[in-house]
Design a protein around this nucleic acid. Structure first.
Length: 340
DNA sequence: GCGCGTAGTTTGTTTACCTCA
DNA sequence: TTTGAGGTAAACAAACTACGC
């Protein structure tokens, strides 16, 4: 993102900000400082919602900000409030995020925000910065988001922390044209991704209700949630395909080895056959392999026609002479092998 | 015709690596 | 030799399109 950030200078006004200001809309693209040297930036949600999204906005216009806490240290599941609404699409989805009518005093939900501020504790990743008051680099994003999530302000680290800011994608086509972009792509925050992953574990597909609830909870558009699930399913399938391919590859190698071994055995038997005229006294001999013991045995064509199982197979009823013949053949084969 | 899912594609972001001053 | 800036390619993910059911 190319933002002209400079300390001590007045940032260039953005066209769409100006435009929104003229419209007396809260566009929510905020820049500021969070302590000395703390650059604060972020593109805030300013979106002309249509259809159901617009309805959502209207429905919760007076609600206080929702505190989300996606801190890894506070697993979502551990903070699940007992579901008062059994119809909630996800067990870890707390009811207060669904914008209950008349519920002005919502309990806090722990999804990464505390008092409307992302904690963004992304420790463990190369130089990830905690967005604490002591952090040197943090991004404070104030999002002008739907009213049911209004006043949410969260911090997120910058590049070092990986995916951040991103949130609150939501410019209209008009704005995108203004910004010279046909398509804006903003990365979801780690918290959002983690939350979506959790929900994906529960359901790989979403019904409209679940999609809306998730979108609300994560402050994303339903379309974003939908796309995320689509891509997630695609990734899962791709991964599974790779695993299957790997398995088939190994299986193919095994079969190739087995085939090579058997061909070698056939070759040995043929060599034995030519070196021992004893076999020539017999009528047409067929080499067959017992599927159970994988032993190769020679049988007459009549016997082979009668059964596919070699008569020398230990698993079958064998006569004394057959065993002796097998032993004789085996011994000859071993002898032939040692002389090779 | 609408809604949804999938496959394939496009595009923006991140990151590692390299070069050079 | 070290360091930081800048360029580049690969990998990844978000978003889109076309198509089928």
């Amino acid at each position: 993102m190319d933002l002209a950030l400079s300390l001590g200078e007045t940032p260039k006004p953005l066209k769409f900000v100006e435009k929104a200001q003229k419209k007396k809309e809260s566009i929510g693209f905020c820049m500021g400082l969070e302590g000395p040297g703390h650059i604060i930036k972020g593109n805030c949600r300013s979106e002309i919602l249509v259809g159901e999204e617009q309805e959502e906005e209207k429905s919760g216009s007076s609600d206080p900000p929702v505190q989300l806490d996606l801190l890894p240290s506070t697993p979502v599941q551990d903070n699940i409030q007992p579901l008062s609404q059994s119809h909630l699409p996800f067990p870890w989805l707390t009811a207060n995020l669904l914008g209950e009518p008349g519920s002005s005093a919502r309990p806090e939900t722990e999804v990464g925000m505390k008092r409307g501020r992302w904690s963004a504790t992304e420790d463990g990743e190369d130089g990830a910065v905690q967005s604490s008051p002591n952090s040197t680099v943090s991004t404070l994003i104030q999002m002008d988001i739907p009213h049911y999530l209004s006043n949410i302000v969260y911090t997120s680290d910058q590049r070092s922390g990986g995916h951040q800011v991103s949130n609150s994608r939501a410019s209209t086509d008009e704005e995108e044209i203004i910004n010279g972009l046909n398509r804006k792509k903003l990365r979801l925050s780690k918290e959002q991704s983690a939350f979506l992953e959790e929900s994906f574990k529960e359901h790989t597909t979403l019904n409209p209700k679940q999609k809306l609830a998730l979108a609300k909870q994560l402050n994303l558009r339903p379309r974003q949630v939908e796309v995320w699930f689509q891509n997630r399913r695609a990734r899962t399938k791709l991964k599974q395909t790779e695993v299957d391919c790997e398995y088939l590859k190994r299986w193919c190698e095994t079969l190739t080895d087995e085939n090579r071994r058997l061909q070698k055995e056939v070759q040995d038997l043929r060599a034995l056959k030519t070196s021992q005229p004893f076999y020539m006294q017999h009528p047409a001999t067929t080499l067959t392999m017992c599927p159970s013991c994988e032993r190769v045995a020679s049988t007459t064509s009549a016997a082979a026609a009668a059964t596919t199982k070699p008569r020398s197979c230990p698993s079958t009823t064998t006569s004394k002479t057959q065993v002796q013949a097998q032993e004789q053949r085996t011994g000859s084969l071993d002898q032939a092998k040692t002389t090779m």
